[in-house]
Structure formats: C-alpha cells, structure tokens
Amino acid sequence: MPETNAVQESIRSMIDLDGATAIFATSFGYFDPHVLALAKDFPEVQFFHCGGLYQEGVHPENVGSYFGYIDEAQYVAGVVAAHASTSKRLGFIAAKPIPQVLRNVNSFTLGARSIDPSATTQVIFTGDWADPVREAEAANSMADQGIDVLTCHVDSPKVVIETAERRGIFATGYHANQAELAPQGYLTGAEWDWSNVYKNYVSLLQGGKTLMNGGIPHLVRGGFKDGFLKLSPFGPAVSAQAQQAAETAQAQLISGELVIYKGEIKDNKGKTVIAGGKELGQTAIELEQMNWLAEGVMGSVG
C-alpha cells in the first residue's frame, strides 16, 4: 500500500468496519503523519509501529514503536564475510543512505574489520527500495571490481544473492534465510525473528495489558538477546574458524561484553565520530540518527 492517506483510510476502515482494537503498522513511512494522526482520533485503539521512534511527551500515549537492532546480526555477518573474502573487499548494496541502512553498513564493516583491519566495504545506493535491474547491475559491477562478498539492505535481497551466486562470489543475506537461492556461496545472514516479537505482543495484549495502562512499554527494542534476530545457518563455505569467531561475537553481543560502537571510531573522511573511550550501547539515540559511514566504507552519504 502506498504511503498516502490511503494508509489512514485503510486503518480507519479496519477500526470502523472490522472492529480492530490494536493496529500494527509495518512500513516506515506510515508513522508520521498517518499513525500519529489516527492515534489522536482513536484514543482507545492501540497503535504499534515498526521502525518508528516513540518520543515520550511528543507522541500520543496509545502509540508504541518496536524495532530490532539487526545491525548486531550484520556485525556477525561482517565477521564471517571477512573470513571468507580473499580480496578483503566486501560489497554492500543499499537502497538509500538513511540511518537504519547506514547503521547496517557500518556494523557490517566494523565486524569485518574486527577480523582484518584492512578490509573495506564498497557501498552502492540504488536509490529505490525495489529496483531489481539496478540491484543486479550493482552486484555485477562490484563483482567486476574484485569484490568477493556481497550483502544488501533492500526490500528483497533475492536478486543480489542470486547474482552473487551466478558470479561465483559469496553473499550474506538479509531479512530472512536466502540459503536456497545460493547453495554454494551463501555464508550466513541477518534475519528478523518477527514471529517471536509478535507472539510476545499478543500474549501481553491477551493478558489485558495496554500501552495506556503502562502494561506494554512504548518503546520496544531488541537484539539477539531479546529474540528479535537470528543468524541464518552457516553455509558450506564458512570455515570452522570463521564459524567459531562468529559464534564468539554473537555470544559477546548477547552478554553485553561486545559493544559495536565503541570509540574511537572515525568516519571515512577521517573525522572522529565517536571519541576514544566512549561507548554507545545499542539503545543510544545517536545511533538511530546516524549520518556517517565508518572508516573502511567506500562511498558517501551524498
């Protein structure tokens, strides 16, 4: 559904005609203005939005937002990618230079550079969430440039993963498990575990808890630890050593021992973006406003 007032009208008809009392809106653009406008009109209905950033006092109290720190899984994918790559040049095909995407690019790169500090990630922005021809073009031109592991953040990773397989290079997935699209070259992938997230919400709602009575937190965020994410099973090209490094990183992320954004981190223009000694935990608001690419990423936020 396009992000116009058709969204509002459709939700309105779910409430009016179908009698819905809790709405889950899952496209980023639905939040502002559509979900916010409706929440004012229907104070008794609860709105849960995926990806939005709930701000206390600014937004109505019957609105909640949920999202996961999928960049944790991208970090681990970067660890695996760095092990698999021989050229130490990785490629990231991204839709748009927005914070959620940049965070994935940076975490992937930081993960790779934790294994080999000389590793680089080339990023190509296609400008569109779904543009199969350009995604394939980007994948091919990166393969031509000697890049040997590809990953992506677009609506459907299918074309990127399949193109990588055809070009005989590796790929790591996104959103869901794409192993069957690339039986040779699929390394691992950053997957959402939404069924787990929604199951939690449903049991809370069934227990009579609501956003308004404080039974459900307004801002729900989570990573590996909270069951928001999982890794795709390792592919045949992943060495035992890489597997072990990945599992260690994942365990450290869960225990909190490993903080991805830990200073000093420079951006790719040499400017220090996170000062030495400073740690930004996953909940840090700065990370949801990221507008830089880390050292080792080739590309610019434009």
Binding site: P132, A136, E162
Partner: peptide, 11 residues
C-alpha cells in the same frame, strides 16, 4: 537478467 520475478522487475 536480472533473473527473478518481482513486481518491480520492469520498472
């Protein structure tokens, strides 16, 4: 090429 079916394939 790109070798996949999706609604945005032709654009």
């Amino acid at each position: 090429y790109p070798g996949s079916w999706s609604e945005r394939i032709s654009s």
